[in-house]
C-alpha cells in the first residue's frame, strides 16, 4: 500500500494488500470469538446454573474481567509465548495464532459474563417447567443455551466488537508484520505513526463499515429467528 491513495479508493480498486489485511482481521477476530464462545458460553452457563462456594466472587471477578486492558492481555500472552516463556516451544509468537489466542483471552470473559447473566435470567423463568419435565443437568444446559441463542448472539457480537476494535493485544503478540500479522487496527496504528492520517482514517472507516455490516447480518438473523421462536 502506498500512502497517496485513500483507503476507500483502495477498497474500490480491490487492492490485494488491503484485502489481505481485512481478511486477516476478520479471520483473527472471528476465530477468537468462536473459541471464546466455545469457552465462555459453557463457563457462563455453568456459573449460572451451579451453586458453589465463592460463586458471588467469581461473578464479580468475571464482570470485572470484561474490562481487561488489551495491552495487559497482550503482554501476558507475549510472555507466555515468548521463546523464553513457558509456551515458547510452540513457536507461536508473532504469528496469527498468537493473535487469536490473545483475543480469545480478551473476549472469553465478556462472553462468559454476558452468558451467565442471560442464562441465569432464563433459568429463573424455566426452572419449574424443566423440573416438572424431569430434565437432567446436561439437558438443562442445552435447553437454556439453545433457547437463549438469540440473546447469546448479542454476547458474541459484543465480543466481536471488542476483538475487532482492539490493537493493544495483537500488536504486542503479532508484531504488526507486513503481509503476515498486520490487521486493520495495527495498520491504522502504523499509518498514524507514519503521519499518514488520511490513510489511517480511511482504514478506520473501512473497519467501522465492516463491524456495522457484521452486526447488521447478526441482527437480521436474530430478527428472523425471533419471528419463529419468539
Amino acid at each position: 500500500m502506498t500512502g497517496d491513495v485513500s483507503a476507500l479508493q483502495l477498497v474500490l480498486s480491490g487492492d490485494p494488500g488491503l484485502f489481505a489485511i481485512v481478511r486477516l482481521s476478520l479471520l483473527i477476530s472471528l476465530s477468537a470469538v468462536l473459541f471464546a464462545g466455545l469457552i465462555g458460553v459453557p463457563v457462563g452457563a455453568f456459573i449460572a446454573l451451579t451453586l458453589f462456594p465463592g460463586r458471588e466472587g467469581v461473578i464479580v471477578v468475571l464482570n470485572a474481567l470484561m474490562g481487561l486492558p488489551p495491552v495487559v492481555v497482550g503482554l501476558a500472552v507475549f510472555l507466555a509465548l515468548s521463546r523464553s516463556g513457558p509456551l515458547g516451544s510452540w513457536g507461536l509468537l508473532f504469528t496469527p495464532q498468537a493473535m487469536v489466542i490473545a483475543q480469545t483471552v480478551l473476549v472469553a470473559p465478556i462472553i462468559a459474563a454476558l452468558t451467565r447473566q442471560t442464562i441465569e435470567d432464563l433459568w429463573v423463568e424455566y426452572r419449574d417447567e424443566l423440573a416438572a419435565m424431569n430434565i437432567g443437568p446436561a439437558g438443562r444446559v442445552a435447553t437454556l443455551v439453545w433457547d437463549a441463542r438469540f440473546s447469546l448472539v448479542t454476547a458474541l457480537l459484543a465480543g466481536f466488537g471488542r476483538a475487532a476494535a482492539e490493537v493493544g493485544a495483537i500488536i504486542v503478540v503479532g508484531g504488526n508484520i507486513e503481509g503476515f500479522t498486520r490487521t486493520m487496527t495495527t495498520a491504522i496504528a502504523l499509518e498514524t505513526s507514519k503521519g499518514d492520517l488520511p490513510l489511517a482514517i480511511g482504514l478506520g472507516i473501512v473497519l467501522i463499515f465492516i463491524v456495522i455490516l457484521i452486526n447488521a447480518l447478526a441482527w437480521a438473523a436474530r430478527r428472523a429467528g425471533e419471528r419463529t421462536a419468539g
Binding site: 432464563l122 424455566y126 419449574d128 417447567e129 416438572a132 433457547d147 437463549a148 438469540f150 421462536a229 419468539g230
Partner: peptide, 13 residues
Amino acid sequence: AFVFQRPAMLRRS
C-alpha cells in the same frame, strides 16, 4: 405432569 399457575413458554414455536 404439572401445569403451573403462570406457565413459562419455551422460546420456541
